[in-house]
Simulated assay, not measured.
Amino acid sequence: MHPDEPHDVSVSGRLNWLRAGVLGANDGIVSTAGLVIGVAGATASAGPILTAGVAGLVAGAVSMALGEYVSVSSQRDTEQALLEKERGELAEFPEQEFEELVALYEAKGLSAATAWQVARELSDKDAFAAHAEVELHLDPNQLTSPWQAAGASAVAFTTGSLLPLAAILLPPPEIRVVIAFIVVVVALAVTGYVSARLGGARPGRAVLRLVVGGAAGMAITYGIGALAGTAFG
């Protein structure tokens, strides 16, 4: 084992955060691209496109942050309740809880003697942490922060949204939709590949789903925008 190789259990947690960030950015790309391309189908003026894009970016980032905050808060409340229940059981029934810990290690494949020894040593060091890890699969010191999750979601969504917004506004009006379409398709392919690799899945299908879905979504919104521009222009 290389001494510099990370073996901390938080590595998987960091990968999950990274994957969530990539997916959040992907949401920003898809939703903002559909919005600004739809508006571009109705008008060539940069003002309405910018207004719609910024409004969509802000609304989406707030929605993502709020949803993540509520979700993680609910999860954290449940985890804290389970931890408090376990703490109370340890204080009230220490011997029974120790026997339960031994049985859990035996169920993992350890011999009775080894399971007893492992449970004894871990209980002497920190019985609560040992029970939380084996029974609840939780680390009391690494519960997810709702504020951190909300902030990360908002940042990821905003980062993804800026790409189609810039791609639709910076090119000349006559080619802005084409350029934005190409940039968004490439970005979706990249995020699909990265999210699949982080999740341990084959990237081909993930990339295809995102590219086809995103392209179809942009085509539909552009068509709706063009029809609305013709009808009400």
Score class of each variant (00 low, 15 high):
residue 132 A to N: 05
residue 224 I to M: 13
residue 188 L to K: 03
residue 158 T to M: 07
residue 169 L to P: 04
residue 47 G to M: 12
residue 208 L to E: 04
residue 190 V to W: 07
residue 19 R to S: 08
residue 49 I to M: 00
residue 118 V to W: 08
residue 150 A to S: 11
residue 200 G to N: 07
residue 113 A to Q: 12
residue 210 L to H: 03
residue 87 R to K: 13
residue 210 L to G: 09
residue 65 A to I: 08
residue 95 E to V: 04
residue 97 E to M: 14
residue 45 S to Q: 12
residue 64 M to K: 01
residue 56 G to D: 04
residue 148 Q to I: 08
residue 195 S to R: 00
residue 40 A to G: 05
residue 130 A to L: 04
residue 16 N to P: 01
residue 48 P to V: 06
residue 60 G to W: 10
residue 93 F to H: 11
residue 4 D to Q: 15
residue 55 A to W: 07
residue 168 I to N: 01
residue 220 I to V: 15
residue 141 N to C: 12
residue 134 V to F: 12
residue 12 S to G: 11
residue 193 Y to L: 15
residue 221 T to C: 02
residue 50 L to G: 02
residue 116 W to Q: 14
residue 206 A to D: 06
residue 180 A to R: 00
residue 110 L to V: 06
residue 107 A to Y: 03
residue 164 P to S: 09
residue 77 D to V: 04
residue 158 T to V: 06
residue 88 G to F: 00
residue 166 A to T: 00
residue 127 A to G: 00
residue 93 F to R: 10
residue 192 G to L: 02
residue 36 V to C: 02
residue 66 L to P: 00
residue 24 G to M: 02
residue 89 E to T: 02
residue 129 A to R: 15
residue 139 D to F: 04
residue 215 A to V: 10
residue 82 L to P: 11
residue 14 R to T: 09
residue 68 E to C: 07
residue 26 N to K: 01
residue 229 G to E: 07
residue 107 A to P: 01
residue 185 V to L: 14
residue 76 R to F: 14
residue 184 V to G: 03
residue 152 A to M: 12
residue 168 I to Y: 00
residue 155 V to S: 03
residue 80 Q to V: 13
residue 9 V to T: 12
residue 220 I to H: 08
residue 107 A to T: 06
residue 172 P to R: 13
residue 205 R to P: 05
residue 121 E to Y: 13
residue 6 P to F: 02
residue 221 T to F: 03
residue 178 V to T: 12
residue 200 G to F: 06
residue 233 G to N: 08
residue 222 Y to G: 08
residue 28 G to E: 03
residue 73 S to L: 15
residue 212 V to S: 01
residue 48 P to L: 04
residue 139 D to W: 06
residue 188 L to E: 07
residue 187 A to K: 01
residue 231 A to L: 15
residue 20 A to L: 11
residue 86 E to C: 05
residue 233 G to C: 11
residue 66 L to H: 07
residue 64 M to S: 05
residue 126 D to S: 12
residue 164 P to C: 08
residue 74 S to R: 05
residue 153 S to M: 02
residue 228 A to W: 05
residue 45 S to M: 10
residue 141 N to H: 15
residue 73 S to M: 13
residue 12 S to Y: 13
residue 171 P to D: 02
residue 218 M to W: 06
residue 217 G to L: 12
residue 196 A to N: 00
residue 91 A to Q: 05
residue 6 P to L: 11
residue 26 N to L: 03
residue 3 P to H: 14
residue 34 G to M: 02
residue 208 L to V: 14
residue 65 A to F: 09
residue 99 E to M: 03
residue 152 A to D: 05
residue 197 R to M: 09
residue 178 V to M: 12
residue 100 E to G: 13
residue 137 H to A: 15
residue 69 Y to L: 05
residue 119 A to Y: 08
residue 188 L to F: 11
residue 135 E to S: 13
residue 101 L to W: 03
residue 69 Y to Q: 04
residue 169 L to K: 03
residue 202 R to Q: 15
residue 158 T to N: 05
residue 60 G to A: 10
residue 167 A to G: 11
residue 128 F to H: 11
residue 185 V to Y: 04
residue 204 G to R: 08
residue 69 Y to D: 02
residue 55 A to I: 07
residue 183 V to R: 02
residue 90 L to D: 00
residue 78 T to L: 12
residue 58 V to N: 02
residue 99 E to S: 09
residue 52 A to Y: 01
residue 79 E to G: 07
residue 15 L to P: 00
residue 91 A to Y: 03
residue 22 V to K: 00
residue 62 V to H: 09
residue 47 G to K: 08
residue 110 L to M: 14
residue 32 T to Q: 06
residue 12 S to L: 12
residue 49 I to H: 00
residue 139 D to Y: 01
residue 56 G to I: 08
residue 173 P to K: 07
